[in-house]
Amino acid sequence: MGKKTIHVSDFSGTVLQPDDEVVRVVVLEHPDLVAGPVQLDATPIEVESIDDAALDVAVVEIHDRHGGGEPRRVVLTASEFDAMATDVPMAQLLRTAERVKPPKTRRSAEKVDYGTIEHAGKPHRGRVTEEEARLVRERLDEVNKRLADAGIREVDPSDPEHAARYGFPTAP
């Protein structure tokens, strides 16, 4: 049995041919976005008007007593923001304003537990634990759906490398 994957544009549903150029659009913020950034596939023609439709905006953080000590992020048009400067033009104000140092980031990233269904089957350099291998074997369809949705290679039990890595039986 073989598998055939058909790629379609997320915007229009148009079937994309193997030699078609695919444009990846990452949505970082949107009022309907609930679980973080997402990726959409499109054709170049479908996204060529994005730059023309782009707005000149100012993204600001308001640090005040509201919000329990956390800054509020506000997006407004650049012209609305510029109009707030009544003494000196905003362009001049921005050139002479005090620079903000970015917060220091921690180098120690959280360690990924591949022995959970959220991460089992993802490519990694480390040793595959028995728990990860068991999850991949027992819940292969679920693991592969999650991997495919994330644009990551799927686990193929007939691939000798995958069979050995996750403990799938191999043909004699």
Rank of each mutant, 00 (worst) to 15 (best):
G2H: 13
K3S: 14
H7V: 13
V8N: 12
S9T: 03
S9A: 10
F11E: 00
S12I: 01
S12E: 07
T14L: 13
V15D: 08
V15H: 07
L16C: 06
D19T: 14
E21H: 10
V22Q: 10
L28P: 00
E29N: 09
H30Q: 04
P31K: 04
D32M: 05
V34N: 09
V34C: 02
A35T: 13
G36L: 02
P37T: 10
L40K: 01
L40T: 02
L40E: 06
T43P: 02
E46M: 04
E46I: 02
V47W: 11
E48Q: 15
S49V: 05
S49C: 04
D51P: 02
V57L: 11
A58C: 11
E61S: 15
I62K: 04
I62F: 12
I62M: 06
H63C: 02
R65T: 08
G68P: 01
G69N: 08
P71C: 08
R72F: 06
R73Y: 04
R73V: 14
V74Y: 09
V74W: 07
S79T: 12
D82Y: 05
A83V: 00
M84E: 03
T86L: 09
T86F: 12
D87L: 12
V88Q: 00
P89R: 10
A91N: 01
Q92W: 08
T96A: 09
K101Y: 07
P102E: 14
T105W: 11
R106A: 13
E110W: 06
E110P: 12
E110F: 09
V112G: 08
D113C: 10
D113I: 05
Y114N: 04
G115N: 06
I117P: 07
E118I: 03
H119L: 03
P123L: 09
P123H: 10
R125L: 14
R127V: 12
R127F: 11
V128M: 06
T129V: 04
T129F: 08
E131G: 02
E132K: 06
A133W: 05
L135C: 05
V136Q: 10
E138G: 00
R139N: 15
R139T: 03
L140Y: 11
V143Q: 05
K145G: 01
R146S: 12
L147F: 09
A148G: 10
A148K: 09
A148M: 11
G151P: 07
R153Y: 08
E154G: 02
V155A: 09
V155S: 06
D156H: 11
P157E: 07
D159R: 00
P160V: 05
P160I: 04
A163K: 01
A163I: 01
R165Y: 09
G167K: 02
T170N: 01
T170L: 06
T170D: 08
T170P: 00
A171T: 13
